[in-house]
Each structure stands twice: as structure tokens, then as C-alpha cells.
């Protein structure tokens, strides 16, 4: 009891120090960076179509806040659907890849092929095939995001130590329970490593798709606002996009920490 009380102050001080390092320092650095940017633009009188001031970006973006929010939601929808498709397709695909050398040999060429196609070139063709709607955007997002996920899940499934597999065999596990009770749980840190890359790429993929075919979304907003020399709004959209990327990435990190604490405890070793 006494010991706990004695220990308490240093512990909370350490927690404060960690919070300051994790959140305080980056925030301060960002604020300073924006301050320098603002000052430099004012000092050298940079025209706003070349490099708008942060204050300008803020006021111009807020001015059309409702529209920007609508575009943000449109992009988020594409990102989520594409990310979801990546998960739904990557998991079984990775399992198929790792169950037999024959499936691996037949599926790998297609995987590599989908990766070697430039997505920007593919987008207009997909629009012709699938129609000018949400679907081609989701497909592009999926194509950009899913590959690293498949690879990391497959790597995770393959890197199960042979002792664990042997333990499963000694316990008379079926192929299915070996997958569900040994391989997949073992692969969780790898799956999350893949999910972190995939969610970031999904944002990139969604914007690529919006550049080619969209009537809404932040990619569309950037295109239209630059066409009308509304550069501050384009910058605003850009900043929102990077925020989306950071926030979604952190969301994956938090989900891993909450639901798979043992995984995040090990993940430093894997990443």
C-alpha cells in the first residue's frame, strides 16, 4: 500500500512525459511549421495561386464547409468500400495461396499482373466496363490496396513455427481447426501490419479513381478547384486527405491494441 503510494507520483509523471512525447511534441512541431509557412508567405508576398497561406486555406475551405464535408464523405465511402473489399478478398486469397503450391503457382501470376497494371490507365477502361458510378472507384481502390494485405497475410500464415503445427497434429487437429485455431491467430500481427499499409493505400486509390471519374470526392474537388484557380481550396482538400490517412491508420492501430493486445505487444518485432 505504502509502496504503491510512493511509486504513484513518478509513474504518473512518466505517463505525462510519454503523452507529451507522443502527442504534445508532434502537435507543437505542426503548429510551428504552419506558423513558419504563414510568416514566409506574408514576408515574401507569395501569390496565393502559387502557395496559399494557411490562414487563407482555412477561411476559403470553411467558407464552402458544407460542400467540402459532402466531398469528404464521398471519399470516405469509397475508401471504406475499397478497404472492405480488400479484406474480404485478401483473407481467403492468402489462405488459398498458402494451402497448396499448385494454387499458389496458378494465382501468383494474376496477382503480379494486377499490380503491374498502372491503375490510372486502368480507371477509364473500368468506367467503360462498369459504368460511371461508385463501382469502378471501389474497384480501383481495392486494386491499389489489396496486394500488400494478401502478401502480409500469406507471410503470416506461412511463418507459423513448425512446432505449433506439430502441436496441432499431435492434438489431432483437422486442417480447418489448424487454420482457425493456429494459423490465423498466429498471423494476426501480420494481418494488422498489412491492414495498416492497405488503409493508407486505400486513400491513395480512392483519390486516383476520383481524378479519372467522379462528380464528388476530395480528388474531384482538387481537380475542379485548381481548374478555377481556387488553389487554397485544393490545399484544404489535400490537408483533409492527409488527415483522413493519419486518422484511419491510427484507428487500425487502436483496434489492434484493444482487440489483440498480444499482437500489438509483438508487432514492433514484425514491423
Amino acid at each position: 500500500m505504502q509502496a504503491a503510494q510512493l511509486e504513484a507520483p513518478p509513474r504518473s509523471r512518466r505517463a505525462l512525459a510519454t503523452a507529451w512525447r507522443d502527442a504534445g511534441v508532434p502537435t507543437l512541431a505542426t503548429v510551428i511549421a504552419f506558423g513558419v509557412w504563414e510568416a514566409a508567405c506574408r514576408l515574401f508576398d507569395v501569390p496565393s495561386y502559387l502557395l496559399p497561406r494557411p490562414s487563407e486555406i482555412w477561411t476559403d475551405t470553411i467558407e464552402i464547409g458544407g460542400t467540402v464535408a459532402m466531398h469528404t464523405l464521398a471519399t470516405l465511402k469509397t475508401v471504406f468500400l475499397g478497404f472492405l473489399a480488400s479484406i474480404v478478398i485478401s483473407l481467403p486469397l492468402a489462405v488459398a495461396l498458402t494451402t497448396s503450391p499448385a494454387t499458389a503457382a496458378s494465382v501468383y501470376p494474376f496477382l503480379v499482373w494486377t499490380q503491374s497494371i498502372p491503375k490510372v490507365a486502368l480507371a477509364p477502361i473500368l468506367v467503360v466496363i462498369l459504368g460511371a458510378n461508385e463501382l469502378p472507384r471501389v474497384v480501383i481502390t481495392f486494386l491499389v490496396a489489396f496486394f500488400p494485405l494478401v502478401i502480409s497475410v500469406a507471410t503470416g500464415l506461412m511463418s507459423v513455427p513448425s512446432e505449433l503445427i506439430e502441436l496441432g497434429r499431435a492434438c489431432r487437429a483437422s486442417k480447418w481447426s489448424e487454420l482457425v485455431r493456429i494459423r490465423l491467430p498466429y498471423a494476426v500481427p501480420f494481418i494488422f501490419a498489412g491492414l495498416k499499409v492497405a488503409i493508407t493505400l486505400a486513400v491513395v486509390g480512392a483519390v486516383v479513381a476520383e481524378f479519372v471519374n467522379a462528380d464528388s470526392g476530395l480528388g474531384f474537388l482538387i481537380q475542379t478547384s485548381t481548374a478555377f484557380f481556387k488553389v487554397p481550396v485544393a490545399f484544404g482538400a489535400l490537408i483533409i486527405l492527409s488527415l483522413i490517412g493519419v486518422i484511419l491508420f491510427q484507428a487500425v492501430v487502436v483496434i489492434e491494441r484493444i482487440f489483440f493486445p498480444w499482437s500489438s505487444a509483438n508487432s514492433t518485432a514484425i514491423l
Binding site: P161, L164, L167, I182, Y186, V188, F260, S263, N266
Partner: peptide, 11 residues
């Protein structure tokens, strides 16, 4: 069977 390493499931 008991192996040389504990081989426990970490999760």
C-alpha cells in the same frame, strides 16, 4: 507430448 520449447499459443 511435451516438446523442448513450451510452444504455447501466445494469444
Amino acid at each position: 507430448i511435451v516438446f523442448q520449447a513450451p510452444t504455447l499459443l501466445p494469444w
